[in-house]
Design a binder for these strands. Structure first.
Length: 496
RNA sequence: GGUUCCAUCGUCUAGGGGUUAGGACGGGAGAUUCUCAGUCUCUAAACAGGGGUUCGAUUCCCCUUGGAACUACCA
């Protein structure tokens, strides 16, 4: 147990919440909970060009869906607010000015174009030196005034030391150091629109909000030393770092045919939580699986509820190496969680898919519920139900060929369907369950010296019009006996 | 290119100076079976390579190789 833990998830609302981000949120959340600490949500909306309210809404709905609650942050408030960076502008501006006053930062008036051509030049020359050339480092006050007069809005850049080495400690990785000369020179701290960049805002807020542990993706490792320089410039104690392994995607290189890995992105498949949610992944399955990419308990147990994770999550068990997101394993997890649901829970989960596809209406709920035992084992994702119920709406009357099972004749098929129909009419008057009906119809087949398939298959095809479907009895329940019997009778005519 | 990080089955991982290197997904085989699933059983599959240290390294150290990330007035 670590005392007084304060951690934060600090997303930037510039897109839908994706697997990687959510995994970071989850680790922070579970780390806070398992140590009795605070989990803080902070919105890093300093990129005004990519900002969207849709992203922000998506963030809230995603966290809500996953059951992640925060102790401090937007909506709930807290003692260190505001928790939205765009509402903290003056704080960053003040601190940036302090840096200027201390001689640790400077104004830069370079144009976009100049920086662009500088970059190009460096690239062409394959220069090992990259980054800003410190063109504005030694501007005199007069020169500055002149540029200001022209109406050029400056940025504020950090003076990165050119000598020495900066080291920070990472709980997982150990000491990580970088020569200061290798830090891309003089990053912008405050943009010309008055907004801070990530580096400035992040350091200031983490300090001001009393963050004790920074858990973020490994892609941030290279800027770790830069942040340390910033902490030192302000005279602050840096928090404990814990860089999380990346979530990767796997793909086949079109040219070489080799398998490649890269930061999980859309070309690997769905990456946004919203996608998974819409397809019908359960939050508990996604949460469980995502947590297991990069973290393990003992290598054996892999089913964890959110509640368990809040107790059992341990920083030390986080893996250092990046992990590939395995869509197939997620499918498996989801199927497992679906099977754990009760029929009542499942109907509620399934109804929206059926209603939005106009297969049933709200009043058919009981019918759908009675259908569930037949499909529960067959669902991988909730939306699979649509395909399984298509026969209700998209029934296509089977032709003769389809109605005759393999190794059977027209006559046999007719007899089989007749027997099945006779039985079904009787059985649905009693309140038998599917298993009982199956048993009895199997009995009937035996009595008539016929293969089970000769009764079941024509029945299935008559009712659903498809050779592959959930168990026929379930289908009849969903369809209703009137329509089902209608279909069967018509098929009987075809077979006559 | 430069910098940094990483390295156990195809994938997620357990383990750790002496193990038959364990589990899960996926694959294969079989059983159950009215289709498709599901379920159950069995099975193949890994310590990247080379040097050290050591009585002994997959485990510790170094190098190589491979992979990844960063290199923006994006985070």
């Amino acid at each position: 147990m670590i005392e007084n833990v304060r951690v934060r998830y600090a997303p930037s609302p510039t897109g839908l919440q994706h697997i990687g981000g959510v995994r970071t949120a989850l680790y922070n959340y579970f780390f806070a909970r398992s140590n009795g600490g605070k989990f803080i949500l902070r919105i890093e909306d300093t990129d005004r060009e990519r900002y969207s309210t849709e992203s922000l809404n998506d963030l809230y709905s995603t966290l809500d869906w996953l059951g992640i609650d925060w102790d401090e942050g937007p909506v709930v408030g807290g003692p260190y607010g505001p928790y939205i960076q765009s509402e903290r502008l003056s704080i960053y501006q003040d601190y940036a000015k302090k840096l200027i006053d201390m001689g640790k930062a400077y104004y830069c008036y370079c144009s976009e174009e100049r920086l662009e051509s500088l970059r190009k030049k460096q690239e062409e020359e394959k220069s090992s030196v990259q980054g800003y050339d410190r063109h504005c480092l030694n501007l005199t006050d007069e020169q500055r005034m002149e540029l200001e007069k022209k109406g050029i809005k400056p940025v504020i850049r950090l003076k990165v030391p050119t000598e020495g080495t900066t080291t920070f400690h990472d709980i997982l990785m150990g000491d990580i150091s970088r020569d200061n000369k290798d830090i891309s020179p003089d990053p912008v701290l405050l943009k010309s629109d008055g907004y801070p960049t990530y580096h400035l805002a992040n350091v200031i807020d983490d300090h001001l909000m009393g963050i004790t542990h920074i858990m973020r993706a490994q892609e941030w490792i290279p800027s770790g030393p830069l942040h340390i320089i910033l902490y030192e410039a302000f005279g602050w104690e840096p928090p404990v770092y814990c860089h999380l392994p990346m979530v990767m995607g796997k793909e086949v290189d079109e040219e070489t045919g080799k398998i490649k890995f890269a930061k999980l992105s859309k070309r690997h498949g769905s990456t946004s939580v919203r996608d998974f949610r819409e397809k019908g992944y359960l939050p508990e399955a996604l949460l469980n699986y995502v947590t297991m990419v990069g973290w393990s308990y003992d290598g054996e147990k892999e089913f964890f509820s959110s509640e368990e994770l809040k107790t059992v999550f341990d920083l030390k068990k986080i893996n250092k190496a990046p992990g590939v997101f395995d869509y197939k394993k997620l499918d498996w997890f989801n199927g497992q969680y679906i099977r754990k649901k009760t029929d009542d829970e499942l109907v509620n989960l399934l109804m929206p898919y059926l209603i939005s596809n106009r297969i049933v209406t709200e009043k058919d709920k009981m019918k759908v519920k009675s259908f569930i035992p037949g499909i529960k084992d067959r669902l991988t994702v909730l939306s699979d139900v649509v395909e399984m119920c298509k026969f209700v709406k998209d029934y296509k009357e089977p032709d003769l060929q389809l109605l005759i099972p393999k190794k059977a004749t027209k006559e046999i098929a007719y007899k089989g369907l007749s027997l099945a129909y006779e039985y079904v009419k009787r059985a649905f008057n009693q309140c038998l369950d599917d298993t009982a009906m199956e048993l009895q119809l199997t009995e009937i087949a035996k009595d008539n010296e016929m293969k089970n398939a000769f009764l079941f298959n024509p029945l299935r095809i008559a009712v659903t019009g498809e050779p592959v479907s959930p168990p026929p009895f379930s289908c009849i329940r969903l369809l209703g006996t009137d329509e089902s019997f209608n279909r069967i009778e018509k098929c009987l005519q075809i077979l006559k």
